[in-house]
Amino acid sequence: MNIAWFLTVSALIFCVGAGGVMTRRNPLVVLLCLELMLNAANLALIAFSRMHGNHDGQIFAIVVMVVAACEVTVGLGVIVAMYRRRVPIDVDELRELQG
């Protein structure tokens, strides 16, 4: 398969994720859409790594996975803290930093 096909799939996944971040209101689903966008970037990185026959892109992808795991951990911690404080789980209601 040509590399361009993989890049097209990557672009489509990224757009789906970006649309989801805009439409959904549940922060859990917003985090899932962020995962989609990060994975699209990973696919593009690995496609370019294959194109050049070089491993560097795969290392980048692994680092992106680490950062995504950190982001998920902290994001889910914030959501659990919100739930404990009986704050509505809705990104439209959460406009203030003040607890």
Binding site: N2, I3, M51, G53
Partner: peptide, 10 residues
């Protein structure tokens, strides 16, 4: 190279 299969596989 975007329209190719990529670098030759080693």
């Amino acid at each position: 190279a975007i329209d190719s299969q990529g670098a030759p596989y080693v």
